[in-house]
Design a protein around this nucleic acid. Structure first.
Lengths: 109, 109
DNA sequence: CCTGTGCGTCAGTGGACGCTAACGTAAGGA
DNA sequence: TCCTTACGTTAGCGTCCACTGACGCACAGG
C-alpha cells in the first residue's frame, strides 16, 4: 500500500492514471499530453506506477501500451473505508453516551 | 486533496492517525508511542496532519489534545471510489463488446 | 516571581525525489 | 544493412522533506 500512496501522491502520476483510466495509450501519446515535462520523466513515472501495481503494460511492436489497473488501489481504498467505518462507529458510540448522560446531543458538525 | 495524500504518504503520520482515530491524546502521549523518533519530529507531523485537515486540535491548559478528523479524507476517498466505479463501467462495456463480437468473454481476473 | 512542565518552532543536515540531457536498445521499413 | 521510430535507462543536479538539537512560549504551582 505504501508504494501505491507514494505513486498517487505525485500530480503528474495522477494525471497519467486519469489518461489511461478508460483507454489504453502508448507511452508517447501519454507524454504528448504534458507540455512542461519531457518524455523520459514520463517514462520514469510510468515505471513508478507500474511497480506500484497501478499500471498494466502491454507491448505491441516497438510501442508499449499502458492501462490503469484500479485493483492496485484496493488496499488504499479499504484503508480509507475502514477509517470511515470507524468514524461512524465513534459517532454512534458518542450518541449513545450522550443519551444516557442526558446531554441531549451536541452539534454534530 | 493533494495535502491529504502527502500527509498520509508518511508511515509515521498514518500511525499517528491510527492512534488518535478512536481516542483523543495529548501530543506527549503520541510522541511517547514512537521510539525511533524525537518529540519535535512528531510535533511537525502533527502540524502537517492538522494543516491537511486530518486532525483536530483542542487545548487544555498546557496540553494540546489531538483527534482524528476522518472527513479530511473525504475527497481522497471519493477520488478512489470514482476510480472504482469507472473500473466497473469499463468491465461492463467490455462485456457488452465481447458479447456483440461473439468472443464469449476472456479472463476477468 | 521563579521553577517545572508541555509543546511548538527554527536552523541546519542528510537523504530521497523529480527533472533533463545523453545514451542504449529493440522493432520495423527501404 | 542502414535508418528511423518508440521507448527505457543512466548520470548528474536542484529541490524538497524528515529529522535532530537548541531555543522560545504559555500555563500551573509554590
Amino acid at each position: 500500500m505504501q508504494s501505491a500512496i507514494e505513486a498517487i501522491a505525485e500530480p503528474h502520476r495522477r494525471e497519467i492514471l486519469r489518461l489511461v483510466r478508460a483507454a489504453e495509450l502508448p507511452a508517447g501519446a501519454i507524454a504528448a499530453h504534458f507540455e512542461d515535462v519531457t518524455r523520459p520523466a514520463i517514462s520514469q513515472h510510468l515505471r513508478v506506477l507500474r511497480e506500484a501495481g497501478l499500471l498494466r503494460e502491454r507491448r505491441d511492436g516497438t510501442r508499449r501500451l499502458y492501462r490503469a489497473r484500479p485493483e492496485g488501489l484496493g488496499d488504499l481504498r479499504r484503508y480509507l473505508e475502514q477509517f470511515w467505518d470507524e468514524r461512524l462507529e465513534v459517532l454512534r458510540r458518542e450518541a449513545e453516551h450522550d443519551e444516557r448522560s442526558g446531554h441531549g446531543g451536541g452539534n454534530r458538525n
